[in-house]
Design a protein around this nucleic acid. Structure first.
Lengths: 218, 218
DNA sequence: ATCATTTTGTGATTTTTTTGTCAAAACGAA
DNA sequence: TTCGTTTTGACAAAAAAATCACAAAATGAT
């Protein structure tokens, strides 16, 4: 049952997907589901589903399956959706703007409380009601207000400086949108969103696919 | 040597990262590098680097290491950076705007040639010089102009319709920014960017880290 | 209440991925 | 050239992840 040996990252990264599918089921008013049926919807094996869920405890019932609502609640609890994190957004450029305006994050428990930038025409304004402050003032801000997560959408060249200062100020989580890989000490959690890497992989796979299509059509 | 047995996705997903590091080395005017030194910079094992690179052929030289420039060129060639893809962006919201304005994608060979939206106040305008057309006209547009990739940043509810139409129009690659998982037939390449999944994983890992910190401090 | 059916949880097995190891190749100093 | 050093490429071993397979539990129809 609820064994407490280290859960692998592969499993963790699948949890949000389960969470989304379960939410869909709730909206469809489906009350129970077997690993088999879920596996068909999600296009993974039933065995994997059972194994994944069992990392956290026996949520299912033999001969019945899983109760959708309570499984949803359990996964939500594991992912900590009820918890709230205070976030500071660095960089009010294109991506920064998009993130600041994206309400879903607030709904998911991530509150962007402040935006830092260095452009004179942005400092003093507000985006989606969130004040934009000059990045020079980050230390004093972070000293008075607790911030859990720094969301980094600053240009590459600014990354080393900003990162070092953010970490020094005690921020423990980083959501990184720059292509830079952050090499940070123990105790800092970094989650990267490398859009250009993703795009390059898409390009590679698409080329491969087109090559395959051409070969078949030959 | 250049064996042609299927390259695993795990390897492919690491290539853009090698590519970035090699570019950094070029800018630092470093001409040659051993797997050992690269492994220290990238924080992976030298063995993995050698194994990864050998999937595509013997780029290195014993006693010398790898020539940075030619390795960079090789990986670029594998990733197809010289190829150009024509892209259509669907959704001129926050994320759509950010992507349309992000010049790096154009530089990487992905040309956004058109933007589709359904909002009356957006249709007819241009974003970053790219015309915004009404989504109703996508079929006729896609019939006359070839489009390789659809970039989807439309609301969830619009996804099923847009996806079906895009695929029907012959688009072969999809860069998906919606939380929806696309279940499409063979021959369509989908690359997902699930921002909220990434954020949830960050939240989970951060919670875990904070718990650990607390335990140590106890 | 009985029993055939469903379906989980779990240990075993297989597959995939990563890491370790070393002979052979190339280097570069003397 | 010669020889000790460096470093790859390839293979072997280990670790991690996914899948299989089945006993045991619960269901639900009769």
């Amino acid at each position: 049952m609820a064994g407490d040996k280290k859960i692998s990252m592969a499993v963790i990264r699948r949890l949000p997907r389960y969470f989304r599918y379960l939410y869909d089921l709730i909206r469809l008013d489906i009350r129970r589901i077997s690993s088999k049926e879920l596996s068909e919807r999600m296009d993974i094996t039933a065995s994997q589903i059972r194994q994944d869920l069992n990392c956290f405890g026996g949520f299912g019932q033999q001969g019945y399956g899983y109760n959708v609502q309570s499984l949803y609640d359990e996964i939500g609890r594991i992912l900590g959706v009820e918890r709230r994190f205070s976030c500071a957004l660095f960089g009010a450029g294109n991506m920064g703007n998009a993130l600041a305006n994206y309400e879903n994050f607030q709904n998911r428990g991530f509150d962007i409380t402040v935006i830092f930038d260095s452009a004179a025409d942005k400092v003093g304004t507000a985006i989606h009601g969130i004040p934009v402050l000059h990045v020079d003032g980050m230390e004093s801000f972070l000293k008075s207000k607790h911030v859990d997560i720094a969301i980094l959408t600053v240009p590459n060249r600014a990354m080393p400086d900003i990162t070092a200062r953010v970490v020094k100020a005690g921020v423990k989580g980083i959501w990184n949108f720059s292509p830079t890989d952050l090499k940070l000490g123990e105790g800092i959690v970094v989650e990267n969103v490398h859009l250009s890497d993703s795009l390059m992989v898409l390009g590679y796979r698409l080329m491969e696919q087109l090559r395959e299509d051409a070969a078949r059509r030959k």
